[in-house]
Design a protein around this nucleic acid. Structure first.
Length: 108
DNA sequence: AACGTGACACAGC
DNA sequence: AGCTGTGCCACGT
């Protein structure tokens, strides 16, 4: 592969695509899984270049809030999530704790 | 080539 | 107890 920077993007994209249908995860969880929990921002930024190819709508902040709605204008995150059986109320995942999918814990 | 920005998270006050 | 500031790393201008 190329530089480690691209690897980070690739890793983020990989993890996001591995999110089970009907589940959600957080930027921090992905960052932590990649060994850079302090770089949660970078996760969102990485998705910014792959949002069209990966189910980024399944990625929310640690509060369960759809922080990236602004980037899903054509395909509302809330609509996509609800279509998967996820209850979204006021831009927040109602069953976030139950729907939460931790890569480090379940993907292994 | 440098500065500022950004889909977050956490510690400190 | 809530709010502010800082850290992180890559990308755009």
């Amino acid at each position: 592969m190329l530089t480690s920077t691209l690897t980070f993007y690739e890793n983020v994209r990989e993890v996001v695509m591995l999110i089970p249908h009907g589940r959600v995860t957080t930027y921090g969880a992905i960052a932590s899984y990649l060994g850079a929990k302090q770089s949660a921002r970078m996760v969102g930024y990485a998705l910014n270049g792959c949002s069209a190819d990966v189910p980024a709508h399944r990625v929310v902040n640690r509060l369960g809030l759809l922080s990236g709605q602004h980037h899903f204008i054509e395909h509302p995150m809330a609509a996509l999530l609800q279509a998967e059986g996820i209850v979204v109320i006021d831009n927040a995942i109602s069953d976030f704790a139950t729907r939460f999918w931790d890569p480090q814990r379940e993907l292994l």
